[in-house]
Write a protein that binds this DNA or RNA. Structure first.
Lengths: 215, 215, 215, 215
DNA sequence: CATGAATGAGACTTCATTCAT
DNA sequence: AATGAATGAAGTCTCATTCAT
């Protein structure tokens, strides 16, 4: 490591090397995204990925410890981008008032990165790996609700963690919906979710004339 | 095979065999449920399952073609039980008024069968196999909403299929919640979901003073 | 064994049992012949055979030690029948003059039992199991030739064992021919072989004008 | 893969790899020939072969799809060599006059490649795989006979396809003979076959005083 | 740094054989 | 005697990982 053979050529050389290295790594990540989203995480072998990236199998191990490591990087990176996309829009806002804006941003981001989400759901180690993404979303929602409670905008009786988790489930569902439907666009999806959370479903639907479920 | 000369001699034999066979099959299914829920579908080998069932490896193949076949049976059976549990309660009711009762029944059933759901989510072929369970739920919800629309209880402007899918995402989320939390009980979970869908979140949360997401 | 429960019923009972046993054994042998000839010895499992015979798997082992034992019996029996069919015709004749009659009888027998021969050839342990059948034929031919030599009918310079073996190869070839062609009938096949052995092919075919193979 | 920037750097690498790969493949083929001829195709496992070749089990699958694929290659290659050895000698000759030369060449080739023939006969899928080799020989013989018929050297009444097949059976028998005897050398074997086909066996052998086979 | 042939642990699957009924 | 569910040894095959070049 740190090849000290020629001091003067060291810097440019290692720069070139570093650039080359980064380029190869990117090639691998991109190929992995493609193949994994298409074939599913289980069915994909390291050889599939290196073939798609047009590098040797051994090269994979110069950049990632194993498939889990790659998956980790991929999802981590995807998560980070999702977070950036959303927080870039939401961060400057007062938390308690950011919800509708956030939902729009989240839908946009989910739509943009739906390939990554497909990978997460197909990765089998789903519950472990994917849960983190959901937690990130749920955490934001919990904070927003709690902030609203602090400001007196929302009743303190709301169970913020649970409600946040349930809502995150609803929102993530849209990513799965896009796995099978082209419509609606993220914008309309967001509005749909907001309308639903505002109580779109009429009270009548929930007034059971005779309730047998008291058991 | 040829002992059909005496009906009372032939039948017992094949009955005994059949009973023994069924017992072994049940042992396998039960062991599989345990191990799969604990270790995840991917990490579980056939040997793990037969060891837990205390039968020989070969025995597995007397009852299932391969792991996928087992998974299929397990999920199919789980789904069927879920469906029965819910429809036993809901079927006699007018569809348009069954929603709250149904949500309670669903939460009960999801809680009871949460092991199966964990398996479904970890099965990797998740998107393919599990989706069916979700569809069953979404289909019920869609029908309920549409029935309400027919009766004039709900606005015709509601996008029933999409709303049903989103709500199914929220409800299923409760099963994942129970993967990590003991509370709340199914009963309170159902009420929480209903409250949420009735518009528990205050309008104020959705009134963004300044919306930047118009793009 | 030898159930001595009732002395007076002993004989008839064991007779019935013996007959039953023999019948089952025949059923197994017949089923085996069918399945083996159709599927090939390698591809056939014990279960295939017992299924075709409509008996339990365990029953197989009451009659044969294992598949090799069955194969052995089957081929042994087939060989024996071939031998009987042929020697029934040939035995009463003076050996040195039996050849044409024998060839006719052999062709008849090969045609009749061509299923067994197919099994022998497909049995993979061919060289070991089948060779015996060939040897039986070669041995007869050798004896016939040697008898002719004794009587001065044939030159003593003929290498009887080798010639017998080569001729047995030619004759057995007809069984393989019948695996793919319906014609000619055994009778004409025998005549063809005899004609060939009598030097049907003209001398001209063997007079190479320029022989380069002297090496 | 990407090192095509410099021709002199890229080629050596892939050349080296290719050479190494070929060497391993040859090792496998050679080991397979040995083991298969010794143990028979059925009794031989992949592990037996890789052990003999002193490579890892997985390596086998880098070069062959499965045992059938290997067998196919082995027999195909063997057949091809047989064909080359024979046609190298026979091709320049007029077909109708090539027979004795061909028989010598065939015996030489059968003797040289008797290991392959032993494998073919033990391969169980014998009838399917081996038949092709026989057909090749039978086809040559048929053509030679037909050519002789064309030239008026042989009677048109000869059933060329059948006779060719029978003769091929006799010739192939010599390969089996060599499985058990060291003598005679190919040269003498060829002469023996030719003598036999020229009608060595005396007419007396075929003059049955009383023929009972008219049936 | 990159390569890809080689490796072998480990999962899958079959099927001859046993044995309780 | 007959049955067929159960068994597990033995073989097949895959694929993550290493390493000489």
């Amino acid at each position: 490591m740190m090849q000290m053979t020629s001091t003067q050529a060291g810097a440019p050389t290692s720069n070139r090397h570093a650039r080359q290295r980064t380029r190869t790594r990117e090639r691998l990540l991109e190929a992995a995204r493609d193949v994994l989203a298409r074939e599913g995480a289980q069915a994909t072998t390291i050889a599939d990925i290196t073939r798609a990236a047009d590098v040797g199998v051994g090269t994979f191990y110069l950049h990632f410890r194993d498939k889990d490591d790659l998956l980790h990087h991929l999802l981590e990176e995807g998560l980070e981008r999702l977070r950036e996309d959303v927080s870039g829009v939401v961060a400057p806002m007062p938390l308690a008032r950011s919800l509708p804006t956030a939902i729009h941003a989240i839908c946009d981001a989910l739509f943009t990165h739906r390939a990554i989400i497909r990978i997460a759901y197909s990765s089998g180690s789903f519950v472990d790996l994917t849960r983190r993404g959901q937690e990130m979303l749920a955490t934001y929602l919990r904070c927003a609700i709690e902030a609203a409670q602090e400001e007196g905008l929302a009743s303190k009786s709301i169970d913020a963690p649970l409600v946040a988790d349930l809502v995150s489930g609803m929102i993530l569902q849209s990513a799965l919906w896009w796995g099978e439907h082209a419509e609606p666009a993220p914008d309309r999806m967001a509005r749909q979710i907001i309308t639903l959370l505002r109580g779109e479903l009429p009270a009548a639907l929930f007034e059971a004339s005779f309730q047998r479920d008291i058991s």
